[in-house]
């Protein structure tokens, strides 16, 4: 079984910051906006290097989204930065009308997504953002898994014409994908080939899926692990191909099971190849304060939870 090495844990938001720094040097049309969270979003470098292309909007996210939409008129590529909660739910109608329906080339970059924001608690832990964003026609939704991939995704979305929701997080997590990788929007990445079960994971849960595959291997279960960094457009073909081989699937995400990756996968399977599926996701609940590790354990979003879901789904084959 192929194994992966953590080259040193890093936060995915720093991957975003590094990607933005790179874009600052390579693409003069990239502009950045932030709603009073420059440090949290790791936008400091871009601001320092390109003050004329950086816009501090204050605690006014609705205005930020509108400004970004307007800035595209004249050829700029705006990257907005705030927490995932304030990037989506708070400004849904602004994104819907001024960005998505208006087909504006805005990149909505959202940090501190999900439970792993930790101690701040449920007011800041959005678990509904993937659902909100994937429902908007024309919106691309990306949730990369580690520092290197978040950096690559940040660079890639500048080249993509159209609105994008880029979701990443706060905690330091394993960094295991290649440095300087090319990021292909919508293309699933096979991390481990397997025959008994497909584990389809996104974001922070990808590393957990790799850990789960190790445990399962010790139990004689061959798991195929796929990194779905792009939730929309979904790589239907890769999913169908994998379950054709394995016959069952577990989806894993730091998000509500209503509206998340799992439901998108269920749609693909129901219409193409009905397959037993288990969901590793929060179950229609808000989060709470705690350390990221405690929260992921309590809400069933770690490798142990994935192993358990695999054991359940195998019985349904």
């Amino acid at each position: 079984m192929k194994t992966y090495t953590n080259t040193g844990s890093k936060d995915t938001r720093s991957g975003f910051g590094a990607g933005l720094t790179e874009l600052g040097k390579t693409n003069e049309n990239v502009v950045a906006l932030c709603a009073d969270l420059i440090g949290s979003l790791k936008m400091d470098d871009f601001k320092a290097n390109h003050p004329e292309r950086f816009f501090q909007v204050g605690i006014a996210e609705a205005n930020m989204i509108g400004l970004a939409a307007g800035m595209t008129i004249g050829g700029k590529i705006p990257f907005t930065g705030t927490f995932a909660n304030f990037s989506t739910g708070r400004v849904y109608d602004q994104i819907r009308q001024s960005v998505a329906y208006s087909d504006k080339n805005v990149k909505i970059c959202a940090s501190h997504a999900g439970l792993t924001l930790g101690e701040d608690g449920a007011t800041h832990q959005i678990l509904e953002d993937i659902g909100l964003m994937k429902m908007l026609p024309g919106m691309t939704v990306i949730n990369p898994c580690d520092y290197n991939q978040t950096k690559a995704a940040t660079i890639a979305i500048a080249e993509h014409r159209g609105p994008v929701y880029l979701r990443f997080g706060r905690p330091k997590v394993a960094n295991f994908t290649p440095e300087n990788q090319t990021f292909e929007i919508g293309k699933a990445i096979h991390l481990i080939e397997g025959t008994d079960v497909t584990i389809l994971a996104t974001g922070h849960l990808v590393w957990e899926a790799l850990e789960a595959a190790k445990t399962l291997s010790e139990k004689g279960i061959s798991a195929e692990v796929i990194n779905i960094h792009t939730i929309k457009p979904l790589d239907d073909e890769a999913i169908i191909k994998s379950v054709t081989k394995t016959g069952c699937i577990v989806t894993a995400e730091e998000h509500n099971f209503l509206g998340g990756l799992g439901e998108s996968v269920a749609r693909v399977l129901a219409t193409n190849k009905p397959t037993p599926q288990e969901f590793v996701a929060t179950k229609d609940t808000f989060g709470e304060s705690g350390t990221p590790k405690q929260l992921m354990e309590k809400y069933g979003l770690n490798s142990q939870a994935i192993v358990k879901a695999v054991e359940t789904v195998l019985k349904r084959k």
Partner: peptide
């Protein structure tokens, strides 16, 4: 720009002005 849901045009106009 699309408009109809009210209150969004001022921000859009300012963004275009900054560009």
């Amino acid at each position: 720009i699309a408009s109809g849901s009210l209150g969004q045009g001022m921000s859009v106009a300012l963004g275009a002005a900054q560009t």
